[in-house]
């Protein structure tokens, strides 16, 4: 199972930078990110990094609220209609997700689609039932 790091952030100048400076100090590379903003003055930053456990620990040490969340990555073709085809299958598997993001791996050839799977039970089994196989963890972290 792969993990992303989720960080609670107030919507204030310099808060995102606090996170990136900790990662820089610890030489942790960011593979992907998504930022969720709410109307309540705070948001959540989701980071896919080379070493999620260490990143999470370092951010907590620096006084931030950070947590590990399960993710699932699926491979898709980097062509028009590629995501549409993948989403059709995910929907047929009965999987509903609230946060996702993508990354091109080989332009014109291959991309990864990441789903926040923390609250989704038996997601691997559901995806495999419709012929989708989650990507191996090593490939996700880009090592």
């Amino acid at each position: 199972m792969a993990y992303q790091v989720s960080i609670f952030l107030e919507n204030k100048i310099g808060r995102l930078e606090r996170v990136t400076s900790v990662l820089k100090e610890n030489r942790i590379n960011i593979q992907n990110m998504s930022l969720i903003h709410t109307a309540n003055g705070w948001g959540i930053l989701n980071l896919l990094v080379s070493c999620p456990e260490r990143a999470c620990a370092k951010l907590c040490e620096a006084g931030m609220s950070a947590s590990l969340r399960k993710i699932v990555a699926l491979e898709m073709q980097d062509v028009p209609g590629g995501l549409d085809g993948l989403l059709t299958k995910i929907a047929s598997a009965g999987v509903n997700f609230t946060n996702a993001y993508g990354r091109v791996v080989e332009p014109g050839q291959k991309a990864f689609f990441f789903i926040d799977a923390d609250q989704i039970e038996d997601i691997n089994e559901k995806l495999q039932a419709v012929g989708l196989t989650p990507v191996n963890d090593d490939l996700i972290y880009g090592v």
């Binding site: 989720s6 609670f8 609230t98």
Partner: peptide, 18 residues
């Protein structure tokens, strides 16, 4: 302040707490 060990990255949970 949200307690650090309670936070798990879930937006809906934080909204519910609010």
């Amino acid at each position: 302040e949200v307690k650090r060990d309670w936070f798990n990255g879930d937006v809906a949970r934080l909204d519910k707490l609010t």
